[in-house]
């Protein structure tokens, strides 16, 4: 009755324990699919209101493309350091892992600092959150992206801490690969925002 050889022609060992890494990545990817719609809504709102400036500053007057490209480049490079961290993890090299995790967190923080600087700059030039629908939708769209980066930095620091205290396990809890997927996703969202919100509006 419990003859495993009859099992659907598979003669090999049948495991009743799914590969938790696959399970967790599946959940992460559907979550990222869902996040696409989230950022889609924010960007669509921005596109709808991109010209509703109500006499306030317009995108053309405001945006400082060289500055924003520099911070875009920093975020892009944080994806490199993230993937190197993941690679180090795969090679079971804790020292390299910690270096690259720290580098990623630092690059992410630099991007956030750049965004804070940019927002203050714009505010000085007369673009407050309440100036126009354009202003509201710009700040909220890029701000939510910034919030995602901030959450990512927190998770990177948590990973770093877990690695230092020897509590980083495979197969359960947070791990480098999942945080990496989230981090790269935040990066690709910025790729879209950089083009659609910045480059195409100047």
């Amino acid at each position: 009755m419990t003859d495993l050889v009859t099992a659907e022609g598979h003669g090999e060992h049948i495991s009743t324990h799914p590969d938790m890494n696959v399970v967790r990545k599946t959940a992460m990817w559907v979550f990222l699919g869902s996040e696409c719609i989230f950022f889609g809504s924010l960007i669509a709102t921005f596109l709808l209101y991109r010209t509703e400036t109500r006499g306030g500053p317009t995108a053309k007057e405001l945006f400082d493309i060289p500055f924003t490209s520099a911070s875009s480049f920093i975020l892009l490079m944080s994806s490199l350091t993230m993937v190197l961290a993941h690679n180090a993890r795969e090679r079971r090299d804790p020292r390299q892992l910690r270096i690259w995790l720290l580098a990623t967190a630092l690059l992410g923080s630099t991007f956030l600092a750049g965004q804070a600087f940019e927002f203050t700059e714009f505010a000085h030039e007369g673009l407050k959150l309440t100036t126009s629908p354009f202003a509201s939708s710009f700040y909220v769209a890029t701000g939510f992206h910034g919030a995602h980066v901030a959450v990512g930095v927190l998770m990177l620091l948590a990973l770093l801490f877990m690695s230092m205290s020897g509590r980083l396990r495979t197969g359960e809890g947070m791990n480098v690969e999942l945080v990496g997927l989230y981090w790269h996703f935040v990066d690709v969202v910025w790729i879209v925002i950089f083009t659609v919100v910045y480059l195409l509006q100047v």
Binding site: T26, W29, G33, C36, G40, A44
Partner: peptide
């Protein structure tokens, strides 16, 4: 990686683009 991940992600991207 597994093709199912790509599919899940692409559904989200295509959904977002077409709806908006």
């Amino acid at each position: 990686d597994l093709a199912v991940y790509s599919r899940l992600f692409v559904v989200g991207i295509i959904g977002a683009i077409s709806m908006f």
